[in-house]
Design a protein around this nucleic acid. Structure first.
Lengths: 246, 246
DNA sequence: CGACACGTTGATCGTGCTCAAAAAACGTGG
DNA sequence: CCACGTTTTTTGAGCACGATCAACGTGTCG
């Protein structure tokens, strides 16, 4: 099967065979991981970059009183912080939300590849900027929307992102999140998620059940959420003066 | 006076004279900007990177109903997205919160400097990772803390960051934010900010008045906020195997 | 079959919002 | 220097969104 990292980055960049071979060489020795397994913990010194091949992971921090705040969901093809080994220690943890498999890429391999493959370096920058855009949108979502629109917005984002990863075009997608997971991501209680998500379901918009999302009416859901997918930067930048040899 | 960008990046990297000269060449032709002036707007195609020399700016998005959610405060020495010109259009706007001055650095100049100065490229990565860490912590702050601790946490962060920029060691710092600015950053109403900030003041922790923060008791404020400054990554990584030529 | 995680529902409470208005600070021009 | 408009801060009263506490279903897996 095709390299999922290559597949993701190729959405933005035009790679030559040399680039593709280099990306293939990164993705060796996949490791199976179980649900709940930590890929890296807050305070650890980062020495590897993780690439998710299968399953979902969550990036989170634990608050002093013990509650967990999720700050990102990672899906197949996502890299955990391409350049994080620049920092002395992790300021957050990453754990699997479902069983899956990952590749641990040594920092030196990442450094080598970005030095020798400028197109890959740029594509990794693009992926980083998209992750940042998602993070900003989550802040907007939690800070500015009430529970109903907040949940709807998360559903929209996950639907779009999951469709990119596995574009079977279906309205039924792999999405291994519990209501508690959503609560920890959205700054709400699981109880409130349960009640409000039920409304979304009964209104015929969308719902998540047994690890799958059933999308019923994306247009109305987008409307309920005030969802604008621009922040996912799925469209490629047109050639222009300001990107070298663009 | 010394180059503020150099000053900031040198906290992390060891530059040689060549690097320093290159950074100096970036910072020419400062432009005065008034309060409220937009440096860049959502939807614009980014062609320049802005460096804040004086004053504060805010990064924000406007929600469909018209409210504003601030996702970052930018202080002197901060760059607005070192690599943002990779993207086709801005997914947010940046505006000045106070009068000040900025430098607009063309994309090509940024590309040149990171190609020719690997230490600068790494230092810019570090700055980007710190900004991301701050963004994550804001998400944790809004998602997981109630108003009292949330405001206290913002005060802690701004105090630490402003002290780095202008370390006069004083408990009285330039901090041009109105209660409405805080409200838009924290996902609260200005009215609630007013009431809760008054408690922090009367308890002798800290307050902001006339564009200045008066820090009364940082230790107790940290405690009230559950503030852990690790996410600001102020300490330099010790030399090690995983960063090339350590 | 038992244990445990997850989902569901009800009743009550409280943080923070809304609406409304006034006082204080600030900038600007006459 | 004062008059004026504008922005910012402050205060009050009532409401509602979402939290908390408690319990019970439901499913899944060992």
């Amino acid at each position: 099967m095709t390299n999922i990292l290559l597949h993701k980055l190729a959405r933005w960049a035009d790679f030559d065979d040399h680039d593709r071979a280099a990306l293939d060489r990164l993705v060796v020795s996949a490791r199976a991981v179980v649900r709940g397994e930590h890929l890296i913990r807050e305070g650890d010194r980062p020495t590897h970059v993780f690439l998710i091949l299968e399953g979902w992971a969550q990036r989170f921090k634990i608050l002093p009183e013990g509650s967990r705040q999720t700050v990102a969901f990672l899906m197949p093809g996502d890299l955990c912080d391409a350049h994080v080994f620049i920092l002395a220690k992790m300021d957050h943890s990453i754990a699997m939300m479902s069983p899956g498999s990952v590749v641990a890429i040594p920092a030196d391999d990442m450094l080598n590849i970005v030095e020798q493959h400028p197109r890959i370096a740029q594509a990794l920058w693009w992926a980083t900027l998209v992750d940042e855009g998602i993070l900003r949108e989550w802040l907007v979502n939690i800070g500015g929307r009430e529970a109903y629109a907040r949940i709807a917005h998360l559903f929209c984002e996950l639907y779009v992102r999951a469709n990119v990863v596995a574009p079977d075009g279906g309205a039924d997608l792999f999405m291994p999140l519990t209501q508690t997971d959503m609560a920890e991501a959205l700054g709400l209680t699981p109880i409130h998620i349960n009640r409000v998500a039920k409304v979304l379901k009964h209104e015929g918009l969308a719902y998540i059940e047994k690890g799958r999302m059933i999308m019923l009416d994306f247009e109305r859901l987008k409307n309920a959420a005030g969802f604008d997918p621009s922040y996912l930067h799925a469209v490629r930048r047109l050639p222009g003066r300001s990107l070298r040899d663009g």
